[in-house]
Structures are given as C-alpha cells and as structure tokens.
C-alpha cells in the first residue's frame, strides 16, 4: 500500500465514519429516552436513500403509501379516543397530521413531476415522506407497551425491523441504487483529491451534531428530553409527557436516519436491507464510545469507519468479522475497569 491508497482509504473511512457517528447518536438518544434498542434505525437510512432514488427516477416512492397507511392507523386509534373524549381540537390536530398531511404529499405527486424538481427539493420531499414515519411507528408499536420490560421492547423492535425490511424489498425490489452526487466538485489539496460529496457528508454530519448539541444544551425541549432520559417519572411530574418525549425522540431518530441515507446514497450502493448492517455498525460505534458519551461515540464511529475501509483493502472477505470483533477488546477493557454490579429490572 502506498500513501496515495492510504489517503484514499482514510477519506473513505472518515466519510462512512461520519454516518456511523450520526446513527450512534440517534441510537443512544432513543435508548436513553424510551429504553428501546432501536434496531430499525438502519431501515430509515435505506428508506431515505431509496425514496430519494425513486423520486429521481420520476416515480412515486412506495414509502408514500406506507406513510398513508401508518397515518390512517394512527388517526383511527387516536381519533377514536379523541372522539370518545369529545376533544374536538385534538381530533383536528390528529386528523391533520396523520391524514391531511400524507394526502397533501400525495396530491403534490399528482400535481407535479418530482423527477424534474431540483435536487434540494427532492431531498426535502424524501425527508418529508420518511421522517414522519418515526413518530407514527412509535405511536403504533411502542406507546402501548411503553412500560414493558426492555426485553419486550427489544423484541418488538426486532419484529419491526423484520417487517420494515420485508416492506423494503416489496417497495424497492432487490436491486441496489446509487443516486447522483450533490456536487461534482473536486478539490486538490497538495496531492490529495477530495470529492465534493465527501465534504457534503462530513460537513453535514458535523453541522447536525453541532445543532443537536445546541438543541440538547440550550432549548427547553432538548433539556426536557435529557431529563426524561435521566428520570422518566421525574420528568413526567414536571409536566413533560413521556408520550411526547417518545414521539419527539423517534422523530429525531427518523430524521437522522433518513438524512444519513440521503447523504450516503451517492457514495455507496444502497439495497433494501443495507440499513441493518449500517445501523449495527452505529451500535458498535456507540458501544466503543462507552454507550453514554456522545463525543466518544463519535470518535468510536470514526474508528469503525476507518477500520472498515482499511480492512476491506487488506482482507475484504473478513471485513465484517474484523469490524464486529473489534467490539471485543473494547468490552474487555470496559469489564476490567468497572466492578459494580448493576441491578436489572
């Protein structure tokens, strides 16, 4: 290997590492607030990327029908409850978000040619379709069992993953897709070539992490989410509804997932089931990062990205083995440095 290749691999590693960092962040967040180990996080990556690809191909993405379906289900469940309580204002808001909004999106497709839109608009539309799925899924799958043991939440999360991957295959078929790059720019830094897309990925990730940092540190909702993560009952007593916290968290997770998908779609080919492995590597990053600290999780993510790109050069057949076994020395180190016994529920 010469320096040139090493630099190339390094760039590659940093680009994917940035995506893993985003996912690690979302996973830690979801777990801390709702106790759900959110296995389907990766499906949002795939759905985001494939929805964009399908838009660019001039088609109506099938995720729109999923959004409509979920919307109808949520509207039925929540709407009935609101009617029973005679809460008209709530009913309007439920119907608005869960029925009118997806229908408006569908109307947009009916009225215009998404294939001809500028790319930025296409990205926004893709996000507009995929992101609301997050809170809807929380409402349907997790809210009814929010107090269940972590094991049950985990199993539901896995079942959801199975369902979503199945839907992915149904919606997008087995072929992989790669979308065009956001920019064709190439920058020369000495002898190093940097592509515009890589800058986009790394820059957006960094920006998003900074925004989230400000959100959690400075805004009342961010602080409320952190409070919920530390003490759910305490936050509830202070008037912050755990249901709202759950929906907000899933909204953020879905947004991070879908955006990651949109960012990475021009760099690597995305298949309907790619999300799972990407999401898992986010987990590995989170674990390396000590599971609680966001900056460490980001550092872990870069490590995973670099390790992956270098091992795919040296021993591509063993790439996954190497990445997933990396966790073991980290765990060993953690187990040697901590001695407390923790009580599980």
């Amino acid at each position: 290997m010469d320096l040139q290749i090493a630099i190339l691999l390094g760039q590659d590693g940093i680009t994917t590492g940035a995506i893993y960092a985003l996912l690690a962040l979302a996973l830690v967040l979801v777990f801390a607030v709702t106790r759900v180990i959110f296995i389907p996080q990766g499906e949002f990556v795939a759905f985001g990327a494939l929805t964009l690809a399908s838009l660019q191909g001039g088609n109506t993405p099938a995720t729109l029908w999923l959004l409509l379906g979920c919307g109808v289900a949520v509207a039925a469940v929540d709407g009935l409850a609101a009617v029973r309580r005679g809460d008209a204002r709530r009913l309007v808001s439920i119907l608005g978000w869960n029925l009118a909004y997806p229908l408006a999106l569908a109307a947009l497709f009916y009225a215009s040619q998404p294939g001809a839109m500028p790319m930025l608009l296409q990205i926004l539309v893709a996000l507009a379709i995929v992101v609301p799925l997050g809170p809807m899924i929380y409402r349907l799958a997790f809210q009814p069992i929010a107090e269940a043991p972590v094991l049950i939440l985990l199993i539901v999360s896995v079942a959801l993953h199975v369902t979503l991957v199945g839907l992915g295959l149904l919606f997008f078929g087995a072929e992989g897709t790669r979308t065009p790059a956001f920019s064709d720019a190439q920058f020369e830094l000495g002898s190093i070539m940097i592509s515009g897309q890589q800058l986009w990925v790394v820059g957006t990730s960094a920006l998003l992490i900074a925004v989230l940092y400000l959100f959690f540190g400075r805004t009342i909702y961010g602080k409320a989410l952190r409070a919920t993560a530390i003490n759910r009952n305490g936050a509830r007593l202070m008037g912050f509804s755990p249901v709202f916290a759950g929906k907000l968290t899933f909204l953020l997770a879905a947004f991070i997932g879908a955006l990651s998908g949109v960012l990475i779609a021009p760099v690597t080919t995305i298949y309907y089931d790619t999300g799972f492995l990407i999401g898992l590597k986010g987990f590995v990053a989170a674990i390396i990062g000590g599971l609680a600290s966001y900056p460490l999780a980001a550092a872990g993510a870069l490590t995973v990205g670099l390790l992956e790109s270098f091992s795919s050069f040296w021993a591509s057949a063993y790439k996954e083995v190497i990445v997933f076994t990396l966790i073991i020395p980290v765990l060993l180190w953690q187990s040697l440095t901590s001695h407390h016994i923790d009580e599980e529920e």
Partner: peptide
C-alpha cells in the same frame, strides 16, 4: 468472559456482534 460483564441492555448488542462474526 468477554461479553457477559457488559452492563445491562448493551449485552444483546454484544451478542449480535459475536453472532455475526
């Protein structure tokens, strides 16, 4: 001996890792 010491709910993720490996 490597993964069982892993605290609480991150153990399942550890098992995913060695299961895949």
């Amino acid at each position: 001996s490597l993964t069982l010491r892993l605290s609480g709910h991150f153990l399942p993720l550890g098992t995913i890792a060695w299961g895949i490996s």
